[in-house]
């Protein structure tokens, strides 16, 4: 049952993730490839990241909604797509909801407790390692879509992608808003497309 699977998968992801932003991405990436790789390619998942980033609300919840709508709506109608996003979103929200209900009264004590601090001292750096591995795999997809080899150096698409990446990275480090960066990249992509770069 795909809707139960959506709920349970995102419940599991929601339960072990803390620290918002992209911290959840490596896990979503792995689970999606494992379970729904036939419906959602690596490229599509990156497109999801762009959409989730440009939409208000927490990134991870947006990702869950999006994955749910695609997986749930596959071969079925729009109503089932809505149900799929509902299951995935509920799953990802529920763990933190439960935790907050339990510790709400003693939140500060909980956060300051030695056990929680100890776990955090391993988890915070772990997130850095996880995101680094996502950067590696998405970098491979974006720059070396046909496989890592010297042959890509002969393709203009490689240089255009690398150029867009470099400019956007500079803008990102100058604290330009992500939505603006995504819009600019889209414009550059369209311009390059009409010049015949993407083939």
């Amino acid at each position: 049952m795909i809707y139960l699977e959506l709920f349970l998968t995102f419940f599991m992801i929601g339960a072990v993730t803390f620290g918002g932003g992209y911290a959840m991405l490596p896990m979503i990436q792995e689970q999606v490839a494992l379970r729904w790789g036939d419906m959602i390619s690596n490229e599509t998942l990156i497109d999801f990241v762009a959409v989730s980033e440009s939409t208000p609300g927490p990134f991870a919840i947006n990702m869950a909604t999006y994955v749910g709508s695609v997986v749930g709506g596959q071969n079925t109608g729009a109503a089932m797509a809505v149900f799929g996003s509902f299951c995935a979103t509920l799953g990802v929200v529920l763990p933190s909801f439960i935790v907050i209900l339990i510790v709400a009264k003693c939140y500060d004590k909980f956060r300051e407790s030695r056990a929680v601090k100890g776990c955090m001292s391993g988890l915070k750096p772990a997130v850095v390692g996880l995101i680094a591995s996502t950067v590696l795999s998405i970098g491979k997809t974006v720059l070396f879509s046909a496989g890592v080899s010297l042959a890509v150096l002969a393709q203009p698409a490689f240089y255009v992608s690398a150029g867009i990446f470099a400019v956007m990275a500079i803008l990102a480090f100058k604290k330009v808003h992500p939505i603006f960066i995504i819009c600019l990249s889209a414009a550059a992509g369209i311009a390059a497309g009409y010049l015949g770069i993407w083939g």
Binding site: A23, I138, F165, V167, M168, S185, I190, W198
Partner: peptide, 21 residues
């Protein structure tokens, strides 16, 4: 075409996030 460009932009955002983390 737009998504081709966006993917490169997302990679940049990820690098920024890696640095912040």
């Amino acid at each position: 075409y737009a998504f081709h460009g966006i993917r490169a932009g997302v990679l940049a955002l990820l690098c920024k996030s890696l640095f912040t983390m």
